[in-house]
Design a protein around this nucleic acid. Structure first.
Lengths: 238, 238
DNA sequence: ACCTGAACACCGTTCAAGT
DNA sequence: ACCTGAACACCGTTCAAGT
């Protein structure tokens, strides 16, 4: 009964389709406009670019006005994140195997995080958060179709989820690191690769051995490889 | 040549064994003392507890003094993170199969993140960072022993890494969420579970169906299940 | 009901000045 | 070489006051 309200991050915003859609004047403030402006800010200036001051300037109001629509910065970030995730997982294939659907969903999330690196960090948040539940649901349904025993459905689904979040976060950081230093991905990988080659041969033989391979690698392909490994693991149990 | 210095996060601190060990007086400031105090602060007060003011108070100095030993807050957090990781992966099994070693290493990381939740978020950083390379090296060596083809060693190793980071980060958030709200893990899961049960049956059938299972689940066991899935996937390719 | 913007209590970081 | 601590340029958030 009260449990629902006890979980603030599983907030009612966007949770049901029946949320009263604001029929406000185009030029007035609204939750949607604030979130949209936040996404723009986040995309152009990174996570540190989202500031109540910068946001209110962009929206031509005072910082206080935003607080009438949004509880705090955390909720703002979560909402922006959720908007991206909702779009990313809105992929529906007909007559596709669950494996293909999982691969497609995962790749779509990977791409979303790649173009919006801040989502990668924002996503690494609580289980109760709406975006996480959204993805969990989509993947979980496919896991069910794969005939994974009921007792293993949770662990299996969260394994896939965790992998997606981990890989997405890692990739997001690579993108951000490159951006911060004003270089592109291949230049960034080149630098990391060169640094690995200079590691102590006794302590870091493996890192040195793959340093060269790191340079030209295809992130999306490697990401999919991990998904396929998990999928193969699921399959081998049957 | 200059590449090394171009990668600041792969800093020389702790990278080699030859780092000049400070032979300072016990009561004076040092990088080690600062990092240790940071870890204490992080453990007791969470990520937001690490403040140059709080830290300097604990160390009985001014904020400026810390900057003589540490470049900035990011480096401080990375160093604290690295100290925990270095301890966590310092596990050496004799005559163990690579599978067992990987499981043990992964579990050790999981536990480290569980007791130091802030490590979970701090770890989701660039590929060039020392802690990431440390783990990569340990896991990668085992992947080599598993006879994974050279071209697939990188993707395989990073798949395991990404899973560990993803799961660790997720778990860290659960721990932090519970802590923030002053409840323990089982109470927290109970609340999330209850919330999931109230989701729209048409949109969230899977989340609803596993809500009950979520309550009593064993995080470590589920974490290992994911590792085993990947390991099984690796094995099935041979 | 919604917005304004000054004010509060913080931050990380710098730097002249000390020893 | 190492430390001090005031000062700077920011933050998120609040809240009396407006419309």
């Amino acid at each position: 009964m009260s449990t629902w309200n006890d979980v603030p991050y599983l907030s009612k915003h966007g949770m049901t389709k029946k949320t009263a859609t604001a029929q406000r004047r185009e030029d007035s403030l609204s939750r949607e406009r604030i979130i949209e402006a936040s996404i723009e800010l986040l995309d152009s200036d990174g996570e540190s670019g989202l500031t109540f001051r910068a946001l209110s300037e962009r929206l031509a109001t005072g910082p206080g006005a935003i607080y009438w629509h949004v509880a705090n910065k955390g909720e703002l970030l979560a909402a922006a994140c959720d908007a991206i995730v909702a779009r990313a997982i809105d992929v529906h294939l007909v007559e596709a195997t669950p494996e293909v659907t999982i691969r497609t969903l995962a790749l779509s999330m990977f791409d979303a995080i790649d173009t919006h690196p801040w989502v990668g960090s924002a996503l690494t948040r609580a289980l109760g958060q709406l975006p996480v539940v959204r993805i969990l649901e989509r993947i979980g349904q496919q896991v069910q179709i794969l005939d994974v025993p009921v007792e293993e459905q949770w662990a299996t689904t969260s394994a896939i989820l965790n992998y997606i979040f981990g890989a997405g976060g890692q990739n997001a950081d690579n993108v951000q690191s490159a951006q911060t230093r004003g270089i592109d991905r291949s230049q960034f990988l080149k630098i990391v690769s060169a640094a690995w080659k200079q590691l102590d041969p006794d302590e870091y033989p493996f890192a040195r051995s793959i340093a060269e391979k790191l340079r030209g690698h295809d992130d999306r392909a490697d990401f999919l490889k991990g998904i396929d490994l998990i999928l193969a693991g699921i399959g081998s149990a049957r």
